[in-house]
Computed example of a mutant assay.
Amino acid sequence: MSKRGIFEQWVEFVGSATQKRTFHAVGFDHEIDDSLTALADMFNQIQNSQIWEELISFIISEFIKSLEFRINLQHLKESLSLTGFSENSLSLIYREIEMNSEKDEKRTLNKKNVSSNNLEKLAERSKSKVFIVHGHEEGLKQSVARYLEKHGIKPVIISEQPSGSNTIIEQIEEYGDVDFAVVLMTGDDEGRKKGDRKFNSRARQNVILELGYFLGRLGRKHVAVIYENDVEKPSDFSGILYIPYDLHGAWKVKLVKELKSSGFRLDMNLGL
């Protein structure tokens, strides 16, 4: 406000807040509603319509100036024409709109000498880590891990990472910053519904827990389940890709397709 020469209005704003025994919190570490409340109360202290118009114009123009890339602001120009603002106030905003139209679509990319045409390829290349959730079946875990490595993907397996005296949950949180999760459901446990006599093969409870964790963290489109045919699948987990494990390697084709649809750059013929 000091830039606009309206220090008196600021003093009135502070005095009003003091009189009402209220306070205003503004900043990146506060909720946006707090900043909006402070801005509204500040505007209420401005009785001069010209000063109010200048301040609004200044805020809009500074916001446009802060944009790092070009966006379509035509709708803003149309709305401003209905405000009744003076030509001087509008020209301040229109000048920033014109300067914004000359910026690149993704100016942030040019800082790294990356063209917008390569944005999609860059995003795909950056995907390189897959978390493997597993039970006691060592063979399947190693098959999936080594297959991912053939495609240049780093498999993240908790048992192969330093624990640092952390609990399993803390380790998952630490090493769970991945692009995709493959959950291996093998028949390590047995269970049955109360009243039933037959026991069914089930994955270990930690596997089901970690499946839910990564569904929440990554979203179901970035999680795939590879399961042994006789293993009971959990209920209420609709929309998940279930890939049956087979000795002929058909699971590899389905897994690669899922990874490609998630943004990984892979060769379908590699390692089959």
Results as ranks from 00 to 15, higher is better:
Ile157Asp: 01
Ile157Ser: 00
Ser159Pro: 00
Ser159Glu: 07
Glu160Trp: 00
Pro162His: 01
Pro162Ser: 03
Pro162Asn: 00
Gly164Cys: 02
Asn166Ala: 09
Asn166Glu: 05
Thr167Ala: 02
Thr167Trp: 02
Ile168Pro: 08
Ile169Ser: 04
Ile169Cys: 00
Gln171Cys: 08
Gln171Leu: 12
Gly176His: 05
Asp177Gly: 06
Asp177Pro: 00
Val178Tyr: 03
Asp179Tyr: 04
Asp179Gln: 10
Asp179Asn: 15
Phe180Thr: 11
Ala181Arg: 01
Val182Glu: 06
Val182Asp: 07
Val183Ser: 04
Leu184Ile: 14
Leu184Met: 09
Leu184Ala: 05
Leu184Glu: 06
Met185Ile: 14
Met185Asp: 05
Asp189Pro: 01
Arg192Met: 05
Arg192Leu: 01
Arg192Trp: 01
Lys193Asp: 11
Lys193Pro: 00
Lys194Glu: 13
Lys194Val: 13
Lys194Arg: 15
Gly195Tyr: 06
Gly195Pro: 05
Asp196Val: 05
Lys198Ile: 11
Lys198Ser: 06
Phe199Gly: 00
Phe199Asp: 07
Ala203Ser: 14
Arg204Ser: 10
Arg204Thr: 10
Gln205Pro: 00
Asn206Pro: 08
Leu209Pro: 00
Leu211Glu: 11
Gly212Cys: 14
Gly216Thr: 13
Arg217Pro: 05
Gly219Lys: 12
Lys221Met: 03
Val223Asn: 11
Val223Lys: 08
Val225Ala: 09
Ile226Glu: 02
Ile226Lys: 01
Ile226Phe: 08
Tyr227Thr: 07
Glu228Gly: 07
Asn229Glu: 11
Asn229His: 10
Val231Phe: 02
Val231Gln: 03
Val231Leu: 06
Glu232Leu: 04
Lys233Gly: 01
Pro234Glu: 03
Pro234Asp: 02
Ser235Glu: 09
Ser235Arg: 07
Asp236Thr: 10
Asp236Trp: 05
Leu241Asp: 08
Leu241Met: 14
Leu241Trp: 04
Tyr242Glu: 06
Pro244Met: 05
Tyr245Ala: 11
Asp246Phe: 05
His248Pro: 00
Ala250Met: 11
Trp251His: 12
Lys252Trp: 04
Val253Gly: 07
Lys254Glu: 15
Lys254Val: 09
Val256Gly: 06
Val256Ile: 15
Lys257Asn: 15
Lys257Gln: 15
Lys257Glu: 15
Lys260Ser: 13
Ser261Cys: 10
Ser261Met: 12
